[in-house]
Nucleic acid binder design. Structure first.
Lengths: 194, 194
DNA sequence: ACAGAATGTCTAGCGCTGCTAGGATGTCGT
DNA sequence: ACGACATCCTAGCAGCGCTAGACATTCTGT
């Protein structure tokens, strides 16, 4: 009774992850508009209703992909920050660059995290830890005695998000990204308490 | 031959605007996901195919709404800039605040302009004049002798867009918007050549 | 004034979407 | 061996963007 249901639970968890991975791969290969429940079901070699025994709907699948992404983003930013040269603003510069790289290299994943409608709670009690960690990397770029470091981080993140999304949708030229990044970091890090 | 076809053209243009207005009202009342070609057709009291004799598809209707929006945004920003108190950074502050107000007060219109996929060309030869004008309002906030004012404007706009969109989707708390705006303007306007 | 051409509009339908009810299939505990 | 249970699939619903083809209506040339 227990060994069997344990195995079932394992299989179930495995299939859960299989669905999330398939959705992500499909999205990264052809964009989210190509991720339909039918194609996804075909890809995991199950019928459509199986998806709904794992997730409440398509949005929940997207959210699951997003949460995976938050973990990767947090690790990515952390690595960049720790590898940064010492000196004022160097950590911030490295983290910002890493953020933009993440957004341009995994556009579909980025979309799931920050653009598509999601039920993931931001800045609340039930915020997923990986998401907190990612935001924390921005906060850590500012001095601990800076009482407004969360505010600094929010604005930095907003600016980076704007740059990422506007250049991805060709609303600002992609070519100028490097200059914009440089200017942003200079202005933010120029503050005495950064 | 001419008077008749002129009248027809007038009626046609009138109906064109009727469709755009209806789409916008429907989107502002219930969000873009509620704007379907069927509901839109019903609202303008024509059948669906009529929409397609005016626009290449639903995306084209959204783009038409967006272009209307660019004109209004440009006027809105211009008004704010001209009414601003003199002094360094005052114009920039007023324009930034006006931008955020525009985004929060007309979220559906803002979405059409800056989030939904669109065929509108940004930063190119065939960029619609109202869009150029809106961007120009940001540029005008910086000193004419500043060779990098376009860059300044791009970063400012990106940051505002990020703040607008992240707070609209509850990814950063809406409450802190005022503080973020203040911080952003201070950092950008703090530059010697702003 | 009237037949024919041209224009405009609508009905009906295609292939797709997310999602679900109900039945068939197979597995398990006793 | 067998009843109970869990699992999975076939088939279908309502709605989507979009379009072909029939139907009126209006204009044009004689």
């Amino acid at each position: 009774m227990s060994a069997i249901s344990e195995r079932r639970e394992r299989e179930r968890a495995h299939r859960h992850q299989l669905i999330v991975t398939a959705a992500r791969e499909l999205a990264e290969a052809e964009g989210w508009e190509a991720v339909t429940t039918r194609r996804l079901a075909e890809r995991v070699e199950y019928s459509q209703p199986v998806l709904y025994s794992h997730f409440n709907g398509k949005d929940a699948i997207v959210s699951a992909v997003a949460i995976d992404g938050f973990g990767e983003l947090a690790a990515h930013l952390r690595r960049a920050r720790q590898a940064a040269a010492p000196g004022p603003g160097q950590a911030l510069r490295a983290v910002c660059r890493a953020y933009l790289d993440f957004a341009t290299e995994r556009p579909a994943l980025y979309q799931a995290m920050f653009i598509l409608p999601t039920d993931v709670k931001f800045a609340s009690a039930e915020t997923p830890p990986p998401l907190r960690a990612a935001f924390g990397e921005f906060v850590s770029c500012f001095r601990p005695n800076n009482e407004r470091r969360e505010l600094f981080a929010e604005v930095t993140w907003s600016a980076l998000h704007g740059m990422a999304v506007l250049s991805d949708s060709d609303r600002i030229p992609a070519a100028g990204q490097e200059e914009r990044l440089d200017f942003l970091v200079t202005q933010i890090a120029g503050s005495p308490t950064s």
